[in-house]
Design a protein around this nucleic acid. Structure first.
Lengths: 108, 108
DNA sequence: TGCCGGTACTTCGTGATACCGAGTACCGCT
DNA sequence: AGCGGTACTCGGTATCACGAAGTACCGGCA
């Protein structure tokens, strides 16, 4: 699929939030997960900027753990604020995607 | 609904394309149409920048016509390139929204 | 006649976001 | 010692929606 970057703006962060919400994980693995979900062009740099933003905004709890196969990993888990933000994200997604689908089928 | 601007990035242009594709129309009316579709916070300035971009990218044909109730209107219609771009937009939307919905329901 | 509200478009600047590239660093294997 | 895979950081760029201000046309009303 051709370039999706513009369309992912505003949704990619929500996807990362959802992934973290379903299991405590770290940046490199999140990138791989997004890639296998179909977002093949998402690269590490993008995910890390999102993770730093989530951390700065106080939506996640971070734990550093040694890896055994490389440098230590920063594991991310949602806190209460993160879970609320995730719920808001899905509400927005539901709202936007339903309106766009409606526009697609004949509008009104 | 709270702020949707980030989530609309990359999709609002496609929505405008769809509206123009279904009927030849002009900026002010497109804004009202988007508002009644549920995108209540979209303002004229946003739509006009999109329209100028579409024109600059050669996706639309523009016709200026007097209005009778105000200044002349710039009517927009899709050309062949615009119809192709619209098709590409819906293909991308289909791709992205289906993956996100899949992520939402349990992932895999 | 003068002013106001609604219609209609333009332009400049701002903020948020995804992306890119380069760099740093840890590890096991050869 | 070097290499590839793992893992994170940082600085800069492009794109996009938005805000604010300005211009301009028109009808109606005091």
């Amino acid at each position: 699929m051709e370039d999706l970057t513009e369309m992912l703006k505003g949704t990619l962060e929500g996807c990362v939030l959802e992934i973290i919400g379903s299991e405590e994980t770290y940046g490199y693995a999140i990138t791989r997960r997004l890639n296998e979900l179909g977002f093949t062009d998402v690269v590490e740099g993008t995910v890390y900027t999102i993770l730093l933003r989530l951390e700065r905004n106080g939506l996640v709890q971070v734990t550093k753990r040694p890896s055994g196969v490389g440098p230590p990993r920063k594991f991310y888990a949602l806190n209460d604020a993160g879970r609320e933000e995730l719920a808001r994200f899905w509400a927005k997604w539901q709202y936007v995607s339903s309106r766009i689908d409606r526009l697609r089928k004949g509008g009104r």
